[in-house]
Amino acid sequence: MPKRVSVTRESETGRNLGFHDNYTGTNMNRPQFVRQIENGNYPHHHVRVINGVKTPVSNPDRSTRNNLG
């Protein structure tokens, strides 16, 4: 089974900017993915504020299926 979410675009500094839900086929930018996580639609991910920017991250666990990247 593929990862649920893949990163599709990064900035020059490495910040993840674009995301693809491999289960639904949905493409999202960072604010859209943050909103979906905050709404509880991606329970294996959470939002951190990094340098003042809400950033989606996967929950720390042993699973590699939910890792972003």
Rank of each mutant, 00 (worst) to 15 (best):
M28Q: 09
N66D: 13
L17T: 02
R48D: 12
R9Y: 06
Y42M: 03
K54A: 08
V5D: 02
G69A: 07
N41F: 09
S58P: 11
R48T: 13
G69S: 12
T26R: 09
T55K: 07
P60R: 15
F19L: 08
H44Y: 11
I37A: 08
N66W: 09
R48C: 09
P43W: 00
N59Y: 09
G14K: 00
K54M: 04
S11F: 04
N27I: 03
Q32D: 11
S6E: 11
H46Q: 13
I37V: 15
N22H: 01
F19H: 07
V5Y: 08
F19I: 05
R48W: 07
N67C: 14
D61P: 05
I37L: 06
P31F: 02
V49A: 08
E12N: 06
N41A: 05
L68F: 13
V7Q: 05
P60S: 13
T64M: 11
G69T: 09
D21N: 14
R30H: 03
R65W: 10
N59T: 12
Y42E: 03
N59K: 14
N27D: 14
N67R: 15
R9V: 10
R9L: 14
I37N: 04
N16K: 12
P43N: 02
N22A: 04
P60D: 14
I37W: 10
M1E: 12
V57T: 14
N67D: 14
N41H: 12
I37P: 01
P56T: 10
S11K: 05
R48P: 06
V7W: 06
G14F: 07
V7C: 09
N66H: 15
I50V: 15
V57F: 14
F33P: 01
T26M: 06
V7H: 03
N39S: 13
G40T: 00
V53L: 08
H45P: 03
E10I: 09
N51Y: 11
V34N: 04
N29W: 08
G69W: 04
D61I: 08
I50W: 08
S63K: 11
M1T: 13
N29D: 15
V34I: 06
P43T: 00
Q32K: 08
S63D: 14
